[in-house]
């Protein structure tokens, strides 16, 4: 059932991604001022959305781990953090590629860029911590706390364009309350991108989460074998002792 759902999700991700690509390169009009490079936005914004959603899941999984315990929450948080990091990296790279022809520089310490970079560093630290200290209850508890605290940066990134002076374009809602997309087809294409990336993320999360669950099962099996071998040795010793009596 789980495997079947995963396959359906994989196919849905592929189909929605192909439809989005068709919309981006064949259907949506070219933006008047920025030219074709504006089309990077249709993947850049979904990458940002998916990374924010992933870090939200890390925080929720962390809360549940601290509250209820259970390896399943730790595995979910770990999987979501890794995917959030991947999409956050892609968001920063695609944004930087867009910035070069439009702003004339690969990077500037603008409020949105800086807060996004801080978010990337926070979850980079989270994953480094997990990689360095391995598995165990204490590491999982520490990771849950770090994951929750790091997620507090997500709302800061979102409102940064409204709080501080910035050159970053407000795609969805500007300071004046309007949106940064001039044609309705641009909004539809952006929405299609958001849907496609959400499905892709859900599929990838299922894959990574499944792998981490399998790793947990592997550890359990290894322990069960050690226990069984210990019992076998114990039984043999008992038989020898009984034979001597």
């Amino acid at each position: 059932m789980n495997n079947r759902f995963q396959k359906i999700l994989g196919v849905a991700a592929l189909v929605s991604m192909l439809v989005t690509l068709w919309m981006i390169f064949a259907w949506v009009p070219t933006e008047a001022q920025q030219g074709i490079v504006q089309r990077i936005f249709y993947f850049h914004v979904p990458c940002a959305w998916v990374s924010f959603a992933a870090f939200g899941i890390v925080a929720v999984a962390g809360i549940f781990y601290l509250w209820l315990g259970g390896q399943i929450w730790d595995d979910l948080g770990h999987a979501a953090a890794e995917l959030g990091m991947l999409f956050c990296t892609l968001m920063l790279i695609s944004g930087s590629i867009w910035a070069k022809p439009i702003w004339g520089t690969w990077w500037t310490w603008d409020s949105r860029l800086t807060t996004s970079f801080v978010l990337w560093l926070l979850y980079g630290g989270y994953l480094m911590m997990r990689a360095m200290f391995g598995e165990g209850e204490q590491v999982a508890r520490l990771a849950a706390v770090v994951g929750i605290v790091a997620a507090l940066d997500v709302p800061v990134v979102i409102v940064s364009v409204r709080l501080w002076r910035t050159i970053h374009p407000a795609v969805l809602v500007t300071r004046q309350g309007g949106h940064g997309l001039e044609d309705p087809r641009m909004i539809v294409t952006l929405l299609a991108g958001l849907v496609a990336f959400t499905i892709l993320f859900a599929w990838m999360l299922m894959l990574r989460f499944g792998e981490l669950r399998m790793r947990t099962r592997l550890r359990m099996l290894a322990r069960a074998i050690i226990l069984a071998e210990y019992r076998a040795a114990d039984a043999a010793e008992y038989r020898v002792a009984a034979g001597n009596r």
């Binding site: 322990r223 069960a224 074998i225 226990l227 069984a228 019992r231």
Partner: peptide
């Protein structure tokens, strides 16, 4: 082998 292991 009769070790009565903890099962998965």
């Amino acid at each position: 082998s009769g070790a009565n292991p903890a099962t998965p």
